[in-house]
């Protein structure tokens, strides 16, 4: 940031640059762009930011982001209430929901088992999931944790926990080649994964 800017610009720019994907130059650009906004618009933006944490909470049932006690998904009576898709973070719900193929419920764990970062099974919302299955007539669980060592460990851990206690269909999302991409440029780890999880066609 150039030294000749007034301190308020420097301060805002500094704050913005701590956002993900925003570097020094982008934060400077954003700050200068805001300077051109109408005062009313700026006030509204400031209010949106300052009340964000009060207005957004986590769903009591599934842990998704919500405005009130329950999230949109849990409130929707049209959704299949006998299937739960387990994800690590709320933002993954949007990714899965946008595909239009899934109409069941979700459960957010709040992370994955990662002993090296001191995140253990008891730090995740696993008991809440077990309670949900106990109290509702759940038929199927889809484990959609990330395809890395920790995500895989979390999926195996959950599968072990659940299969001992309940009669359920437990599945893991398939891992492999992204749709629409060129097979030629698939990296070898993905390719090996895709071959391992191939499916019979006929």
């Amino acid at each position: 940031m150039s030294n000749h800017y007034p301190i308020p610009i420097k301060e805002l720019s500094q704050s913005l640059s701590s956002l993900p994907g925003v570097g020094k130059r982008t934060s400077e650009r954003l700050t200068l762009a805001l300077l051109d906004w109408e005062s009313d618009d700026l006030r509204r933006l400031g209010e949106q930011i300052s009340t964000l944490k009060e207005k957004v909470t986590h769903c009591d049932i599934c842990g998704n982001l919500a405005e009130k006690e329950l999230c949109e998904v849990c409130l929707n009576p049209k959704r299949n209430n006998d299937v739960i898709c387990v994800v690590e973070y709320p933002q993954q719900i949007a990714a899965i929901d946008n595909c239009g193929r899934y109409n069941g419920l979700y459960h957010v764990l709040g992370g994955k088992i990662d002993p090296l970062s001191n995140i253990h099974a008891e730090n995740l919302r696993i008991n809440q999931l077990i309670d949900r299955i106990k109290e509702n007539n759940i038929r199927e669980i889809i484990l959609s944790t990330s395809p890395d060592v920790e995500g895989e460990a979390t999926a195996v851990y959950l599968a072990n926990e659940l299969k001992d206690q309940f009669q359920l269909n437990i599945s893991r999302i398939a891992l492999g080649i992204p749709v629409g991409s060129d097979l030629t440029y698939a990296d070898s780890a993905t390719m090996a994964m895709a071959l391992d999880s191939r499916r019979p066609l006929l």
């Binding site: 002993p115 253990h120 099974a121 060592v149 460990a153 195996v156 851990y157 072990n160 926990e161």
Partner: peptide
């Protein structure tokens, strides 16, 4: 020691 979690990493 959480032996259940260790068992998971054993399989990996």
């Amino acid at each position: 020691v959480n032996f259940k979690a260790i068992g998971v990493f054993d399989s990996i």
